[in-house]
């Protein structure tokens, strides 16, 4: 696939950059009386708990900000990081995972102003925090709701319990609430995720929140760029166990990804029509990414 050189940026973006450069924060005079130099930010990827640039070296402009443009090899590396983190995250107690997700909510709360500055409505930030807290609460309750002691004809206990499916590829919607609403249900049950984010600044700011919460590196990996370019590599990847297509808007691409994913018998989560993230999501976002393990255990000794 063609690498877009930094020079080949679309003109509107260039104009936006120029506008931004012109309005460079002329900070109020520092203590010594001179204006500060602006510290410009590059939004990088979030893989394995670190913030690397794209291995391809590509960037693109979003609203005047430099953002890393992830390649298929970044997706590959992110899957390796997610796979490495998965057993330990799934092995943590449900109570602990709930605490960690709650901690994420705390940190979003602390950084709420940052999200608002990026243009996220304050009410949406609040809704995202509430959504995180809601999912945090589910972590040690989901097994009680979807697990079961099954009646069987014989001297056995027969127990079904939910288990995480593994590494989940997520094509995320652009809004903060949407992003939180696809990431939280996947990780709270013990999966690890590779997220293809649509709103890069918001997503990477969320990554900064995750990096300073207690979420272990590799549990959430966030790639920015064109989902249409990277998603097919996740869909065909043998080491990705499920695919959440909530953020795919092009029905043709969604169908393509679903077809590709069937090659490795992935679970695919695909919303019909536009998802309204403000309503109660129910259990489906969690249960769609769970497997059921059933154990027979003899009784009567």
């Amino acid at each position: 696939m063609p690498k877009s050189a930094p020079t080949a940026k679309p003109a509107p973006a260039k104009a936006a950059k120029a506008a931004k450069a012109a309005s460079v924060k002329t900070e109020p005079a520092a203590s010594n009386g001179r204006a500060r130099l602006a510290v410009r930010k590059t939004y990088k990827l979030y893989v394995g708990g670190a913030f690397p640039r794209s291995e391809s070296g590509r960037t693109y402009l979003v609203d005047g900000d430099n953002v890393a443009l992830a390649s298929r090899k970044d997706a590959r590396d992110a899957v390796v990081a997610a796979r490495k983190a998965q057993p330990k995250w799934a092995g943590a107690t449900a109570y602990n995972r709930g605490q960690v997700v709650y901690r994420v909510a705390e940190m979003v709360e602390a950084r709420a102003a940052e999200f608002v500055a990026l243009g996220v409505p304050a009410a949406e930030v609040d809704a995202a925090i509430d959504r995180l807290v809601w999912y945090a609460g589910w972590s040690d309750k989901i097994a009680q709701v979807v697990g079961n002691a099954n009646p069987v004809a014989g001297p056995y206990f027969n127990l079904s319990s939910p288990e995480p499916t593994g590494v989940v590829g997520v094509v995320a919607p652009p809004s903060l609430l949407g992003l939180v609403s696809v990431v939280a249900p996947a990780i709270v049950t013990g999966n690890t995720v590779v997220v293809l984010a649509a709103g890069p600044q918001v997503a990477i700011t969320l990554a900064e929140v995750l990096a300073t919460s207690d979420v272990p590196g590799g549990v959430v990996n966030i790639l920015t760029g064109r989902a249409a370019e990277t998603a097919p590599w996740l869909a065909s990847h043998d080491d990705v166990n499920a695919l959440d297509l909530t953020g795919v808007t092009d029905p043709e691409l969604a169908a393509d990804l679903e077809r590709t994913a069937s090659g490795t018998l992935k679970r695919v989560l695909r919303s019909r029509g536009e998802t309204d993230f403000t309503v109660d999501p129910g259990l489906h976002p969690m249960t769609a990414l769970l497997e059921t393990k059933t154990v027979w255990h003899p009784k009567g000794f």
Binding site: R83, S236, H237, D238, D239, V240, T264
Partner: peptide, 9 residues
């Protein structure tokens, strides 16, 4: 095959 392989296989 043209797509990434996984250790499970």
């Amino acid at each position: 095959t043209g797509h990434y392989a996984g250790p499970d296989y």
